[in-house]
């Protein structure tokens, strides 16, 4: 009994560091990461612009749901059209599902007609842990002042079924629309759904 308790606490201490998730309404934590093209970018580079972070893993069925349907690409195009920066983050560790090279990441974007501003290769999981990213997809919306305004699921129906997309309401486009109109984001935090991030 005592031993189990001790083990549990030890495990939680290790995990504890990773679970201090950023809070909506607070400044989004700054980070630097390498892009698929080999440049290094920081969140602070994009001050004055809205930023969307999308955790992704091209082999995850939940990610496929949103790419095979064209839903994610449409969202990326709409967002970047008005100057919003879209960063797709791959936190899969080497050897784990979804881990890809920079070239392969660029190729995947071309194949899938994806339109992110950049793809971040976060194979040591640093950015993922910083944001406590749990699933693919897991979405974050940051406003022009660098404040986190939304964190969570991409839409209202947690499933891997493409047929659910038209029936679901998209939290990310709702948050972006509210920010565009200088309104309060209505739903600020939800339970993300998808595959676990393959740290």
């Amino acid at each position: 009994m005592k031993r189990i308790a001790a083990t549990l606490s030890a495990a939680s201490l290790l995990a504890g560091a990773a679970t201090a998730a950023p809070r909506v309404g607070q400044p989004a934590p700054d980070f630097s990461a390498r892009t698929a093209e080999g440049q290094t970018v920081s969140l602070s580079d994009y001050e004055g612009k809205k930023v969307v972070l999308e955790w992704t893993n091209n082999e995850c069925p939940f990610v496929k749901k949103h790419y095979d349907s064209g839903n994610m690409q449409a969202l990326q195009r709409r967002a970047t059209a008005d100057g919003t920066v879209w960063l797709s983050v791959i936190s899969s560790a080497p050897g784990k599902q979804g881990h890809v090279s920079g070239d392969r990441a660029t190729e995947l974007s071309a194949e899938r007609k994806a339109a992110p501003t950049a793809i971040l290769l976060d194979e040591d999981g640093e950015v993922g842990q910083l944001y406590a990213a749990k699933t693919t997809p897991h979405m974050f919306v940051i406003d022009e002042t660098g404040t986190l305004r939304y964190a969570g699921a991409i839409d209202t129906i947690p499933s891997a079924d493409i047929d659910d997309i038209p029936r679901a309401e998209n939290y990310v486009s709702a948050a972006l629309a509210s920010l565009r109109n200088d309104q309060r984001v209505v739903t600020t935090q939800t339970q993300p759904y998808g595959c676990s991030v393959k740290y």
């Binding site: 189990i4 939680s12 201490l13 995990a15 504890g16």
Partner: peptide, 21 residues
């Protein structure tokens, strides 16, 4: 994934947890 700290004593068991959002 937060703490799940079990302590036993003083006539009660406590489980300390970390808050979700």
């Amino acid at each position: 994934a937060g703490r799940h700290e079990v302590t036993d004593g003083d006539g009660e068991t406590r489980i300390a947890l970390d808050p979700g959002f």
